[in-house]
């Protein structure tokens, strides 16, 4: 019998989706601030309880939401990020030496994921030359300018969030909730995608797919998304 397209990628339980994330795993997580974070997979990973994790993500959530939940549960041993402000829990664990932190310039972090998913082990970038992050890194001159050698990142797992997806793992993101998600999806050996709406194969316009399904191994539809806003800013008039 012919296998139905995409059969096997769709799961209905987040607990099942994260059940083989082992202690000590490297997990790449999409999102920027609280925007576009895989909130259901993170909650499931907290329940699953894997510890000693290396988490790679632009930010670390807030105290009681997003990756802050894994911090609170002491599951993270090492954090790779570009910006970790506004999280008191993070600060406390860092200052108590419970947490090892590697700060990476945001563009370098994005490119390290993209490279990891693209079969490129390292790349040269001008970012950070002459700064503390250049310490211990190889530099090389091209056309009269200095560049740093930066290593790619590959995750044992990647957790990503999209707006819509199908059983083949094709993903479409919405507005600025895209951010690091497509790059995390590429860089995970096993990428777990959660979507707000799982649609029939063929329903997504093939011209407008952001992440082709080949980068996604597991896909689930979440419900009851919190989609918390970190800084609600509004204007008062239509001016």
């Amino acid at each position: 019998m012919l296998r139905r397209m995409g059969e096997g990628k769709v799961l209905d339980s987040f607990a099942q989706a994260v059940s083989d994330i082992a202690d000590g795993a490297t997990v790449i997580v999409g999102g920027f601030g609280l925007c576009g974070i895989p909130e259901k997979s993170i909650e499931a990973l907290r329940e699953h309880g894997a510890r000693d994790l290396t988490v790679v993500s632009n930010n670390c959530g807030v105290d009681d939401f997003g990756l802050g939940l894994l911090l609170a549960n002491h599951q993270i041993a090492r954090f790779v990020a570009s910006y970790v402000g506004e999280n008191a829990l993070f600060e406390r664990q860092f200052l108590n030496d419970e947490l090892d932190v590697e700060l990476v310039p945001q563009g370098t972090l994005a490119e390290r994921m993209r490279a990891g998913g693209s079969g490129i082990p390292a790349f040269y970038t001008p970012t950070g030359v002459g700064t503390p992050i250049a310490e211990g890194k190889e530099t090389r001159e091209f056309d009269g300018r200095q560049y740093l050698l930066e290593r790619a990142i590959i995750g044992d797992f990647a957790l990503v969030k999209a707006w819509r997806g199908d059983a083949l793992g094709n993903l479409v993101y919405r507005d600025t909730a895209r951010n690091f998600n497509p790059l995390a999806a590429m860089a995970g050996r096993v990428t777990i995608a959660e979507v707000e709406e799982l649609v029939e194969v063929g329903e997504l316009d093939s011209n407008l797919i952001h992440t082709p399904g080949i980068f996604v191994q597991r896909i689930l539809e979440g419900s009851g998304y919190d989609k918390r806003i970190e800084r609600r800013t509004v204007r008062t008039s239509a001016a």
């Binding site: 860092f94 310039p105 945001q106 992050i133």
Partner: peptide, 15 residues
């Protein structure tokens, strides 16, 4: 003091 991170600043000034 607590280090919050460079975010995108290093990329912006170099590019």
């Amino acid at each position: 003091k607590m280090v919050k991170g460079m975010g995108g600043a290093m990329d912006l000034v170099s590019g």
